[in-house]
Design a binder for these strands. Sequence first.
DNA 1: GCTTAATTCATACGTTTGTATGAATCAACC
DNA 2: GGTTGATTCATACAAACGTATGAATTAAGC
Lengths: 221, 221
Amino acid sequence: MLTPHKLPDTKSAILNAAERLFAAHGFKATSLRAITGEAQANLGAVNYHFTAKDDLILAVLRRRMRPLNAERLALLDRFEAEAGGRPLKVEKILEALFRPPLELIARDRKAGRYFVRLIAQCLIEPGAFLQPLIQEEFAERNRRFHSAMRRALPHLSSEDVHWRLHFAHGVFLHALANSHVLELSSRGRCRVGNSDAVLHRIISFCASGCRARGEREGEKA
Amino acid sequence: MLTPHKLPDTKSAILNAAERLFAAHGFKATSLRAITGEAQANLGAVNYHFTAKDDLILAVLRRRMRPLNAERLALLDRFEAEAGGRPLKVEKILEALFRPPLELIARDRKAGRYFVRLIAQCLIEPGAFLQPLIQEEFAERNRRFHSAMRRALPHLSSEDVHWRLHFAHGVFLHALANSHVLELSSRGRCRVGNSDAVLHRIISFCASGCRARGEREGEKA
DNA sequence: GCTTAATTCATACGTTTGTATGAATCAACC
DNA sequence: GGTTGATTCATACAAACGTATGAATTAAGC
């Protein structure tokens, strides 16, 4: 078959099952048999469509990362065009960074939550085969958001901005990837239900953090 | 032997090797053979001293978590005693939370960095056998810091405080567990060298974030 | 309707895994 | 100095893993 136009494919079924299971149990702890079992596919299908497990992992990650990062850059572009050359507000920059993944969660809650957990695992994992992906997907994104943020906070050094973007990313990742911890410690009173509300919480925390005065503050609260 | 008073034990060697390898490659991806190999111990020693792999993981975690959380609570106690009944500054609360682990890093950089990565993996991993540990170690800590923070920020609701403590934790974990990402994106210009400087950065970001106004801000930067 | 290429499937191979077992070694104590 | 209990060690085992192979099945093109 030269033009395979089947969409509810075995291939997609495997990607979906792998996404869920990798997010739930980790890359190493998820066996190909568990994936093909859930996808109702044959064990050999993984090797046929993805060659090897590592390539399957990369395919799972790329499927979501690529469009998501494109969305983020497009949003940043739009905001910058709207601002007409003036520096963006920190909140706008953070919105361009965090709204696309949160809209994925709103659109498909399960897939979105799985994906954030995958990213978190990706960063923790040292797997050498992941490094190229991280490099290629994050390089431009980091550069663009860094320079936008520098213009928004001109009194900060380049290093300061690197640190604070890093912190903001930590807020986002931990908040969504480990939301079960929040639900546990708040005895169920805090949930990641309405994603607009969560987006606002994250942005307002991070924007305020990014604007923090660098030097030690006075003794009065 | 009724009183085994050997300290440079096989047991400790295994714990050290396991700590390093678990942090570097994850729980599931680290084999007992790799651990005993690095610890120059026999494979059987793991089963002898720790019964099973899961128990070894718990032992590795508990060894650091227990004294660290005790330190945090003691520091909070001290600060509260010094304040003599008045609410603590947000910075002080965060210092009680983050200084102990950062001092572990200062004292023993490798062990400290490993440990933070372990905690991050712990939260990502769903392993049922970890849940009791998380529950027992975090329960009181969360309660204490939550109520201290509520007194420091009386205008916030209890839910707000849960969220912001959660965010602060995300900053801390990501900053230290995934510091390689920061080093990469800053092309080596940001490093987690001086832990006092990092502590200050984290605290000032989080304190400012915790004080953020809950409602949407005006349009002007 | 036969041909051809794409896809599925059952099965097998060689490793590596965690765990179990029992003998060997060691250190302390009476 | 022989006994005892703690620890080490070599080895074995069954299970699970990723991957490979080749036959069966399916569907499209002429």
